[in-house]
Structure formats: structure tokens, C-alpha cells
Measured scan of single mutants.
Amino acid sequence: TLFEALYDYEARTEDDLSFHKGEKFQILNSSEGDWWEARSLTTGETGYIPSIYLAPV
């Protein structure tokens, strides 16, 4: 399942991933609670993103 960003997000740590509204992600690991490891389909970068900023596509 792909997810789309509902809002912009600016990374706060080196493990976080910055993204823009409308960016799409492949989720790599969603077992860490509210922060999911994801790969951006726009940039190819991976990192942790807040799941509350996402909606399934």
C-alpha cells in the first residue's frame, strides 16, 4: 500500500525524512508506533516519518 503526505514536514533529527504535501511513500516498517520507516517515491530517500501526516492512496 502506498501512502501520500497530507502536509509538509521538516525533519527534526537525522533519522527523520523531510517531505512535501502530496509526496508518495512506500512504507518499509510500520511496527515502531506512530513513526514509520518509509521510502519517498519522489526522492528515493528513506527515513522516519510521522504516520499521522499520511493517508493511504
Rank of each mutant, 00 (worst) to 15 (best):
K21G: 03
F3W: 15
I52N: 14
E32S: 14
E37R: 11
A5H: 01
D15W: 15
T43H: 03
H20S: 14
G33Y: 09
F3Y: 15
S31C: 10
H20K: 15
T13L: 10
T42G: 06
S40P: 01
D8T: 07
S40D: 02
E37M: 15
R12N: 10
E10L: 11
T42F: 11
E10N: 11
G44Q: 06
I27C: 03
L6Y: 03
Y53K: 04
R39P: 00
P56S: 07
L41E: 06
A55K: 13
D16I: 13
G47P: 00
A38R: 00
T1K: 12
A11F: 03
V57A: 08
S30H: 11
L54W: 01
F25I: 02
G22S: 04
T43Q: 02
K21H: 05
G44H: 07
E23I: 01
T42D: 10
T46V: 14
G47M: 06
K21S: 06
Q26W: 14
H20Q: 11
T13E: 09
A5G: 03
G44K: 05
F3E: 00
L2D: 04
E32R: 15
S30V: 11
G44D: 06
L6D: 01
R39K: 12
G47C: 03
A11Y: 02
T1I: 13
T1C: 11
Y48R: 14
E14P: 13
D34L: 13
A55V: 13
A11D: 02
G47F: 06
K24N: 05
S40Y: 02
R12Q: 14
N29E: 07
L2G: 02
F25S: 00
T13I: 07
T1Q: 13
L54I: 09
I49P: 00
S18C: 04
Q26G: 02
D15T: 14
S40F: 03
A55I: 14
P56D: 05
E37V: 15
I49A: 05
L2K: 04
S30D: 12
E23L: 01
G22V: 00
E14V: 12
A38K: 00
L41K: 04
S31I: 10
Y7Q: 11
E10W: 10
I49G: 01
Y48S: 06
I49D: 00
W35S: 07
S31A: 11
S40E: 02
W35T: 07
E23Y: 05
D16W: 10
E32P: 09
I49S: 01
G22T: 03
F3H: 05
D34N: 09
S30T: 13
H20T: 14
D16R: 15
P50K: 13
D15E: 13
P50A: 09
A5P: 00
D8Y: 05
S31Y: 09
Y48L: 12
R12W: 08
L54T: 03
S30N: 12
G22N: 05
L2Y: 11
W36F: 06
E45Y: 10
P50L: 14
P50R: 13
I49N: 00
G47V: 05
P56I: 09
H20E: 09
A11V: 02
G22F: 06
P50S: 09
L6C: 07
D15Q: 14
S51C: 11
G33A: 14
E37D: 04
L6M: 10
T46R: 10
V57S: 08
L28D: 02
F19G: 01
A5L: 05
Q26F: 14
Y9M: 04
V57N: 05
Y48I: 09
